[in-house]
């Protein structure tokens, strides 16, 4: 028994090696981005980020320090200038929209307001399609109806329709109904476009549930509705969780849909981020900091939904 335990541990060494090696490879660009986001622009341009900790490169440019939080500060307050927010505030030459105090966190060009707008867009646009997809996925997997296969074939095909093909007709529709520039319009559009994939994934997952489960439920006198709410939804939590993660992510990182249907009047995070860079590329170094700021929430969602990825949810439901 004990020996087998030691053997087991030894057996795991290659496992650890493979995992840690892959993690390392995957992390390198991210670390590079992170280090770059903490460096002043002149250094980013002239030396590699992996040399950031060595002393050599500070000699090249006299005045700058090796690390700085300025990129983050500028990104958060929505600084639009040629220096940095901190320098401008020290010299008193900041733009009229900035006050150089805590109120700048609410600057409409900054991240604060945009964060709220992004949340307002993302949460309903994540939950709505998953909800509706769970319904439809259940029907595709466990209910018989005419034209099931044809509808399913269309569903798979719809996934490949490029967003750009639908923008003009939908915008025309919105203009007629007064829905341009409203959150509702964005929610519905994201719901429509998230749905084919969401249904497709739900059907696959639900289709894999054992038949006995449903037979037993119906034998107990459950209706299809109670079966759906009390059995199907709880059992499909891993699928719902992974769908939730990705739908959240896609909506959160979307720029085009937000731009076309919401526009600049209700700026979301991606809009503010893309506007940090001028048309000639100046200010691109702020993108590195902004990327990290906008990544925080999706990572929280990822960790939060991890708890649904647990083995054995079906354990009790399956006999032999």
């Amino acid at each position: 028994m004990r020996r087998s335990k030691i053997n087991k541990m030894l057996n795991k060494i290659p496992t650890h090696f493979v995992i840690i090696f892959t993690m390392f490879v995957w992390l390198v660009p991210t670390i590079g981005l992170f280090i770059t986001s903490l460096r002043p622009l002149p250094l980013i341009n002239t030396t590699g980020w992996w040399t950031a900790f060595s002393d050599k490169n500070t000699q090249q440019t006299s005045s700058t320090t090796k690390f700085t939080l300025n990129n983050y500060i500028d990104a958060i307050v929505g600084y639009r200038g040629t220096n940095t927010y901190v320098e401008d505030c020290q010299s008193g030459s900041q733009s009229s929209s900035l006050k150089c105090n805590a109120s700048d966190l609410l600057n409409p060009r900054g991240m604060g307001q945009a964060f709220v707008n992004s949340l307002l867009v993302t949460i309903p646009a994540t939950i709505l399609p998953i909800f509706l997809a769970a319904f439809a996925g259940y029907a595709f997997a466990w209910l018989d109806f005419k034209g099931r296969f044809l509808l399913f074939a269309i569903l798979v095909g719809l996934q490949v329709v490029p967003l750009q093909m639908t923008l003009v007709p939908v915008l025309k529709m919105y203009a007629q109904t007064g829905m341009t520039g409203t959150f509702l319009g964005v929610w519905l559009f994201h719901t429509g476009f998230g749905m084919p994939y969401a249904i497709y994934l739900m059907r696959n997952f639900l289709g894999g549930l054992p038949k006995d489960l449903f037979e037993a439920a119906y034998l107990d006198g459950a209706s299809h509705w109670t079966t759906f709410t009390n059995l199907v939804i709880p059992l499909s939590m891993p699928a719902i969780a992974s769908l939730g993660i990705f739908q959240f992510l896609w909506v959160w990182n979307d720029l085009l849909v937000a731009l076309v249907f919401l526009g600049g009047t209700k700026p979301v995070m991606t809009y503010q981020i893309s506007n940090m860079v001028t048309s000639l590329g100046a200010g691109w170094h702020l993108l590195t900091a902004a990327a990290f700021l906008s990544m925080l929430l999706p990572m929280v969602v990822f960790f939060a939904l991890q708890r649904y990825f647990v083995r054995g949810m079906l354990a009790g439901a399956i006999k032999g």
Binding site: W26, L27, P29, T30, G32, L33, T36, F246, L249, N253, L255, T270, I273, S274, W284, H285, L287, T288, A290, A291, F292, S294, M295, P298, M299, F302
Partner: peptide, 13 residues
């Protein structure tokens, strides 16, 4: 993590 980084930022790196 790379999925969560919007490509505007990831493109830079």
């Amino acid at each position: 993590m790379p999925m969560a980084i919007s490509f505007v930022g990831a493109g830079v790196i």
